[in-house]
Design a protein around this nucleic acid. Sequence first.
DNA 1: CGTGTAAGGAATTCTGACACG
DNA 2: CGTGTAAGGAATTCTGACACG
Lengths: 108, 108
Amino acid sequence: MSEAPSYKERKVITIGVVSELTGLSERQIRYYEERKLVFPERSPKGNRKYSFADVELLIDIANKREEGVQTYEIRQDMIREEKKREKRMRKQLLRGEINARFGIQRER
Amino acid sequence: MSEAPSYKERKVITIGVVSELTGLSERQIRYYEERKLVFPERSPKGNRKYSFADVELLIDIANKREEGVQTYEIRQDMIREEKKREKRMRKQLLRGEINARFGIQRER
DNA sequence: CGTGTAAGGAATTCTGACACG
DNA sequence: CGTGTAAGGAATTCTGACACG
């Protein structure tokens, strides 16, 4: 195991295609990056590359914006969600460590 | 159910990115299309768009070419494979139809 | 046959800025 | 704040062709 396939996360889509896929203008997409809502990668010469996950995120953002939610609030919500996720991850990790020591017995 | 997600099949990757992903030159990628080995979609203005499935196919093609297999033979193999697939599909479909009538009972 | 390359043009993307509100 | 637009330049992509082998 090394190269995770993960088509959803690979950053390979150019901004023009993302624009078609989301219905957002390129201006809007770049602005949401400026507001730290999306983080495309860059090709060697500086062109933005997005993943399918980014496309879905942008669609969520577009929906929030239509409801009148400001980019700042959207960002705060994202940060909160991220912290919850991390909390869960830490718990999971802890459980894993406990199992490794006292749980499942493996050959030695 | 309507919009199948299917990240693997969505044609959204430009030829430059495909070139990076596969290690093939754009010239080679276009030539394999000419030889009917890959079938990218086109954007409104005519730019080629590939899927992750296409990228994997191109990598397979690249490997075959390295072994000295000609594009014509590769195409013949692909056609043979396709026919096998269709055969299996017809069988599956047939089974499904039988089940629909005499197998699993559903409410009516 | 398979691939490189130079050619010319059209479309894409980038950045920084002015505009409106 | 969020988005449109004109501006100028650089990079991308396209097609048809000549080249070599």
